[in-house]
């Protein structure tokens, strides 16, 4: 992914607590609300952030108070770039069953990554599976 950002950056390291994750999400959303994103784009970014941050805190770091989550968000006139890192062992995103398969459709978990991939322009994990990088390209570039 190329990185050419100029507008603003938020860089936060938070403990593995859902409340701390919520505060970072609210801070990022506040920045996005004042920019030229459509309501659908903001909904999608919010959903992807929510799923990724909760995954990092709950499933990555297993709510371990000795582990932290690092969130970097960079916004430009064209896109928003988000990187979320946890200190867990990582996982293989390809091993998550397709929740839209008939045999998994009624399983009550495992939909977060699918939603992230659908609402964001790009979602990538590192090899270890404990760092996710996401981009959302604006439908209408900011002035």
């Amino acid at each position: 992914m190329s990185r050419d950002f100029s507008a603003w950056t938020i860089d936060r390291t938070i403990p593995s607590e859902l409340l701390s994750g919520r505060r970072v999400l609210e801070e990022l959303l506040e920045r996005l609300q004042g920019e030229n994103w459509t309501s659908r784009e903001i909904f999608g970014i919010r959903l992807a952030l929510e799923e990724a941050v909760v995954n990092a805190i709950k499933h990555g770091n297993c709510l371990d108070p000795n582990k932290q989550v690092h969130v970097i968000c960079q916004s430009s006139s064209e896109k928003i770039w988000i990187k979320i890192s946890d200190e867990g062992p990582g996982f293989d995103p390809e091993s998550v069953p397709d929740c839209t398969d008939a045999e998994h459709i009624d399983v009550p978990h495992g939909r977060g990554i699918m939603l992230m991939r659908n609402f964001m322009s790009r979602v990538e994990y590192n090899d270890q599976g404990n760092v996710v990088t996401m981009e959302k390209v604006r439908e209408t570039p900011a002035a």
Partner: peptide, 16 residues
């Protein structure tokens, strides 16, 4: 106005 995948899980369990 908004729900996450965790809420979907509860709805699936409720449906069952």
């Amino acid at each position: 106005e908004f729900l996450s995948s965790a809420a979907l899980g509860k709805l699936i369990t409720l449906d069952k």
